[in-house]
Computed example of a mutant assay.
Amino acid sequence: MAVQNDTLLDINGLKMHFPVKSNGLLRRTIGAVKAVDGLSFSVKRGETLGLVGESGCGKSTTGRAILQLHRPTAGTVSFDGTDLTKLKGEAMRQMRRKVQIIFQDPYASLNPRMTVGDIVGEPIRVHGLRTGKDVRTRVEELLRVVGLNPYFINRYPHEFSGGQRQRIGIARALAVEPDFIVCDEPVSALDVSIQAQIINLLQDLQGQFGLTYLFIAHNLSVVKHISDRVAVMYLGKMVELAPSKDLYANPMHPYTQALLSAVPIPDPEVEKQRQRIILQGDVPSPLNPPTGCHFHTRCPIVIDKCKAEDPPFHDYGGGHFVACWRATESQEQMNLKLQ
C-alpha cells in the first residue's frame, strides 16, 4: 500500500462524553460516560490506520465522532485542513461526500424496503452526481466494482447473503466518490472465508481509487493484514500507536502484549510452547474511570506512579508511541510474570 507523506485527517484532543441523567421530573445531569477521552492522532492520505481494543473501549464512537454522527464534546477533527466540528447544515452535507462509513451489520444498515438500486443510487441523487438514466448506469458500474452482478439491481437486501450485503454497503459508500472511509468492524459479522474476500476487496478499492481507511476491528490478525499502522485503545484512551510490523514484533504496552498473546498462531508446535497473558478483573466503567493510567487496575506490572499520574503519549522512535510509565521495561517484566 503506497502511502504519501501528507496528512489527510488530524485529530486533536477528541472527547466524546455522553451525559447521564438522574431519574425523576428534573432529570439533572449527574455524570458522564467518557467513551472517548482525549485522543490525538493523524491519518496520512492513502494509508490504512487500524484501530483495535476490547468491546466498549470507544473504537466505534471514535469513528462516529470523526464523521460528526456524534458531535464531539471537545477537540478538533481536521479533514484536509477543514475542522469538521465547526461545520453545520449544507457545509456538513457537502463534506459528507468526502467522508463515508461502512457499518458493522450488513443487514441492519440497509433499508429492507429499498432495492439495491435505490440504496446505492440514493446518495448519487442526493448529491446531484447523476440524473435520470445515468443514476442506474452508475449503480450498475458500482455493483460490478464490488463484485456483484448488475442484474441484482432490483433485488432487496433479504435476498442476499451476509457477504453480498456488505458489498452493497461498500458500493453505497463508494457512490459519492469519497476520500476517507471509516470501516466500522466491516467483517466481524461474516464467515472467515468471506472476511478474506471483503478484506481483499477493500485493499483493491484502495489501490484503484486512492482511498484512506480507518479500519476498526477486534480481530488483530485481520488488522495486521490490512493496516499500515495500528492504534490500540483502552477505556477511551489510546495506549499505543505504531507501524503495523513494529507493533506486532515489538509491543511495548502491557495491554497490547496481552491482546497479541491471545491471537492464535497457525503452528501447533509454536502455539503449544507459547504462554498466554491473562488479565485479571474487568474493564472499569467509563462512567468513573480510574485515576492515573486507566489500565493500572488490571496491569500485571503496575507501580504507584501508574495509579497517580496519567502517562504521556511518548514517541520511543520510528513513530512508535506508547502511554506507559514502564514502556521500556515492560517486555522483560511481563516475561518475568509469566515464568
Rank of each mutant, 00 (worst) to 15 (best):
N5L: 05
D6Q: 13
T7I: 15
T7N: 10
L9M: 11
D10M: 01
H17K: 09
H17N: 12
K21R: 15
I30S: 10
A32N: 11
K34W: 09
T48S: 14
T48E: 08
L49V: 15
E54N: 05
C57L: 04
G58L: 09
S60V: 05
T61P: 10
T61H: 07
Q68K: 15
L69A: 11
T76H: 12
T82D: 13
L84E: 07
R96C: 01
R97T: 04
K98H: 14
F103I: 02
P106Y: 05
P106V: 03
A108C: 08
P112T: 10
T115Q: 09
G121V: 05
I124Q: 09
G128N: 06
G128L: 04
L129M: 14
R130W: 04
K133H: 01
L142Q: 05
V146Y: 00
L148E: 03
N149Q: 06
R155M: 09
Y156I: 08
S161K: 06
G162C: 10
Q164I: 01
R165K: 13
Q166V: 02
I168M: 09
I168W: 02
I168L: 03
R172T: 00
R172S: 04
A175E: 08
V182L: 01
C183N: 07
D184V: 00
E185H: 12
P186E: 02
S188I: 01
L190F: 03
V192P: 14
A196T: 03
A196W: 08
Q197H: 05
N200H: 09
L202G: 03
L205M: 08
L205C: 11
Q206W: 03
Q206C: 05
G207V: 04
G207D: 07
Q208F: 03
Q208R: 15
G210V: 03
I216C: 02
H218V: 09
S221N: 10
S221E: 11
D228P: 04
R229P: 01
V230E: 01
M238A: 13
E240K: 12
K245A: 13
P251L: 02
H253Q: 11
Y255R: 11
Y255T: 00
T256N: 10
E271V: 01
R274P: 02
Q275V: 00
Q275P: 04
I278M: 13
L279Q: 11
V283E: 12
P289K: 12
P289R: 09
T291W: 02
H294Q: 10
H294T: 01
C299K: 03
I301L: 02
I301F: 07
C306R: 13
K307W: 05
A308Q: 15
D310L: 13
F313N: 12
H314Q: 14
Y316G: 09
G317I: 06
W325K: 13
T328Y: 00
Q331P: 00
N335T: 03
L336Q: 15
K337E: 13
K337R: 15
